[in-house]
Design a protein around this nucleic acid. Structure first.
Lengths: 109, 109
DNA sequence: AAAGTTGTGTAGACCGTCAAGGTATCAAGG
DNA sequence: CCTTGATACCTTGACGGTCTACACAACTTT
């Protein structure tokens, strides 16, 4: 099933921020949730996930805290910051703008 | 105007193929047309355009022919091949699939 | 004469993703 | 007890598409 690309380049930050806006969770859970909600279409590789999380944390858009996971193990829970909420809005707007523009082309007659 | 990214990474091939499916045209005109049809949202830089055209030609999806442009100058006109039409279908389907999946996440409540 | 438009092209840097590996803990099955 | 699989974190290196910034050429406009 894994088609050529499992992600659209540049949208991972948006996906993570949006997912975290619903609930704080750890990296592993974020990946699982994106995969599940997208109907198994989007696959987040760990080599994409963790660098992205560190990137977002460094930008101050998310904040990490070690906590016990549902399975009783220590896991790094990420939560959206205020700046992250703003960034999410900006990225979501940008995505709408760009995907709408692309659809204009694709549906051209 | 010029936001961070003028394109969504990985969609340029689709945009070019789709544009050429309506009419054979030269590179410069392709870029202008994408920009115009998208309402000036999508900007195709020359450093993206020409490599992409060469890539597509090498894949056998488009074919070049020198012809006189509307302004009376020589220009390289590109036309979609049969394989290119197939590729366009595949890329369009993939875009639908992926963008729909992303929208599922983004519009999550 | 200079500047702008059309038109093609390249070089190098940038950066996000992917493939592939590593570490560790815990649960379940043989 | 030992292995397998799931959970959970992480890094390294390669890859590839896009961007910035150039260069070149011909023709038009100011």
């Amino acid at each position: 099933m894994g088609k050529p690309n499992d992600l659209v380049q540049g949208t991972l930050d948006l996906l993570i921020l949006k997912t975290l806006s619903l609930d704080a969770m750890h990296g592993w859970a974020i990946a699982k949730r994106i995969q599940q909600v997208s109907g198994e279409v989007l696959q987040v590789q760990q080599g994409s996930l963790y660098p992205a999380l560190h990137r977002l944390e460094q930008q101050g858009w998310i904040k990490a805290k070690w906590q016990e996971s549902e399975t009783g193990r220590q896991a790094k829970f990420y939560a959206l910051t205020a700046a992250g909420r703003k960034q999410l809005e900006a990225e979501a707007a940008n995505w709408s703008r760009l995907s709408a523009a692309i659809n204009l082309i694709v549906s051209e007659v």
